[in-house]
Design a protein around this nucleic acid. Structure first.
Ligand code: FES
Ligand code: FES
Lengths: 143, 143
DNA sequence: ACATATTCGGACACAAATGTCCTATTTTTT
DNA sequence: AAAAAATAGGACATTTGTGTCCGAATATGT
């Protein structure tokens, strides 16, 4: 469903948020360890998230990544997916037709579209804060 | 969501079913034209579907692909997806954890799992017949 | 100032998905 | 029997996703 890039991106963001909630900045190395992802690849993904300002970075000794508390609250899973995989997911036809529309629907459009919307709505209202708290309270795991 | 291979596979199957409902066998060339897919690549996909007996093929002059009427009724989208992409989709964690379980859930497991199940249930109960009839009645398109 | 620790960014490497080509095989028609 | 029309299947080619490496830039601590 999601690309690996997205999966790593979301997990990394959750961990950065978790650390930020505890007032800490986190290094790439530590992140990659904790979410069990390839370090150099994760770096690329984080760069992207920094560019769209979902997370912040600082270089040098004691540098690393962190997330502003308003961002933790306001950023949704969908925001991360958009930043990494782009906006297409929402408008792609399930059967791969060049365009998805109710005027010229494919054979499954009417049945599948609603579930799709549900999924997107869910991603849209699931915040990083919520996910990070799940980890903090040990209700969920990251690796 | 689905691989291109699956998308082509489903569209091709719908078209073969449609033709079979009208008592006709269909050649690869015609299928590829009608569903707007790369011919040689589509051939590979159809081979797979023949092997699992979702469709039937016959070689030689006037050969081609067809689908038995009981298959048209009994085959679901999920059957095709299973045949092509395998069984994994159902048990993969949304965030890419090595295993998805309620005991050790990721941060979105509890919220996303139900929607996922909905999607799978929908694929499971959407039959080839239903989709083919949509095309026949011009309520849907294939390309 | 210098050494060190860190992210940034480009280039490269590998793997998987997608797509093509050519020959073999089978069936039908002539 | 031969020719033609179709699928089957293996090998190859291309593209995209995933992942690595290394030098540059930048911030911190000594
Ligand atoms: S046209 Fe296929 S999902 Fe909308
Ligand atoms: S553990 Fe992530 S979806 Fe189930």
């Amino acid at each position: 469903m999601l690309s690996k890039t997205c999966e790593y991106g979301i997990r990394a963001t959750i961990f950065i948020a978790l650390q930020s909630l505890m007032g800490m900045r986190t290094s790439l190395k530590y992140i990659a360890e904790e979410i069990d992802s390839p370090e150099a690849f994760t770096a690329k993904i984080l760069q992207k998230l920094v560019r769209v300002k979902i997370i912040e970075s600082s270089k040098g000794v004691n540098g690393g990544f962190n997330m502003a508390s308003d961002r933790i609250k306001s950023t949704s899973v969908l925001d991360i997916v958009y930043a990494i995989d782009g906006y297409d997911i929402c408008n792609r036809c399930v059967l791969g037709l060049s365009q998805c529309s109710s005027n010229n629907p494919c054979s499954v459009h009417h049945k599948f579209r609603p579930v799709r919307e549900d999924l997107i709505a869910l991603m849209n209202k699931t915040t990083v804060e919520e996910m990070a708290l799940g980890i903090k309270d040990k209700l969920a795991i990251l690796r």
